[in-house]
């Protein structure tokens, strides 16, 4: 009895080990087909991120250097980390009235957790998430970004 059990244990053990080796052996012999590595810096040219990927917050401008931000500060309130600071100014309208507009839209990338809450909160679709992901810089200060282009204006008709 002992002997048959003994032999069975040895047989089962050896067989399970060989099954394991068969699997790794398969991957070794079929390496050309099975290798899944993405050689990242080399495939930069063909690498595309998913269109919803949350890389960083940007403010799109059109060809007339106009954006859609009204300076309502909804994103600033929505941000859990204080990533966004909006500095507003009073702008003189053609009809003589004064209107609130953004002076600078400061965005601290180093504080951002890419939670997308600011984009959701924006009532005028002024900001969106860009698909960039190579954010490393040598100086932390470079991560503080101003999103509105210099001299940019608000788009016509955006309230």
């Amino acid at each position: 009895m002992f002997l048959t059990d003994y032999i069975r244990t040895v047989y089962k053990g050896v067989r399970s080990l060989l099954t394991g080796m068969k699997t790794t052996g398969y991957y070794f012999t079929h390496a050309r087909k099975e290798i899944k590595t993405e050689e990242y810096p080399d495939n930069r040219a063909t690498l595309t991120m998913f269109d919803r990927f949350k890389g960083e917050v940007v403010m799109p401008h059109d060809e007339n250097n106009e954006h859609r931000c009204t300076g309502c500060q909804a994103c600033e309130i929505a941000c859990p980390n204080g990533t966004i600071k909006i500095i507003t100014k009073q702008e003189l309208q053609p009809d003589g009235k004064k209107k609130k507009a953004i002076d600078t839209f400061v965005y601290h990338l180093e504080l951002c957790t890419m939670c997308n809450l600011c984009v959701v909160a924006c009532p005028s679709d002024a900001i969106k998430m860009a698909q960039t992901f190579e954010h490393s810089v040598y100086d932390k200060k470079q991560l503080k970004k101003v999103l509105n282009n210099p001299g940019s204006k608000i788009m016509e008709g955006v309230e």
Binding site: T24, Y27, F28, A31, E34, I35, K36, T37, E39
Partner: peptide
């Protein structure tokens, strides 16, 4: 290289 190929990697390249 053996480790790499068995683990679906290139190994050193």
């Amino acid at each position: 290289k053996v480790a790499g190929f068995m683990q679906m990697r290139y190994g050193p390249n």
